[in-house]
Amino acid sequence: MTGIVESIGGGAISAMSSFRSTIFAAAVTIFKAFNKEICNSASFSVLISQIYFTAVEILPMFIAISVLLGTLVMGILFQTIKEIGLDQHLGRILVGFAVTELSPFVTVLLLALRSSSAINTEIAVMKVNREIDTLTAFRIDADRYLFIPRIVNGMISLVLLNGLFSIILVTSGLIFSKLIFGMGLATYSQILAGSVHLSDSIILVAKCLTFGFFITLIPILSGLRATYDVTTIPVSVLHGMIRVFLAIILIEVLSLVARFI
């Protein structure tokens, strides 16, 4: 019995310690991001190449998934709305569920699967190969050169890809509103415009930025936990990805609380 309690206590202390160190690292990163030393062509090159790998290379797969999932979800959603007679709430459901909740959640999952794991592995490999030590030896701040450009890229990419997913959802909605409700473009636009609230939009952008920040920061921190032993790379990626998914759930819950209180 004592062993079980000790085990639960140990796990809780470890989780709290990990949470505290992530929040501390987030604060340090934000502080450093606003320092003028970040402005150099090397960091800018890293940012541009990261945006290419994260937001451009993924486009064909992202658009295909968005069209497939978006069409399916919107078709089911509109059909259900018609069946249970909630036609008058169509706009609110479309904006409140599809655009504000579904779109960022699918976007962050796709980016986490593709980019977070890649960033985690890249940083762990750099640590094992002593390349992080090389940067330190040449007085190059890894935070400013390696990490902040990746985090800024995560935030920019998530906002942009979320926008793209939302556009595809809304376009699918236009097709299904015509097919199911016989609605024209003018009526559909009017319903949409009447359902968008400023507070929802602010929460949506803040949520995307927070998602983008943590799905890049956590893999970086996890990659840095690797030692000089190659076998620590998969362990670091495993732990990093679990933390990323826990962070996604936590941010989603907090954003829901913020929207509905």
Partner: peptide, 22 residues
Amino acid sequence: YPLISNLTVWQNVALIRQYHDR
């Protein structure tokens, strides 16, 4: 202190001047 593996030769050398001398 190896060369950074995801950078080319010229990028490895230029990085120092780009970062320190802007």
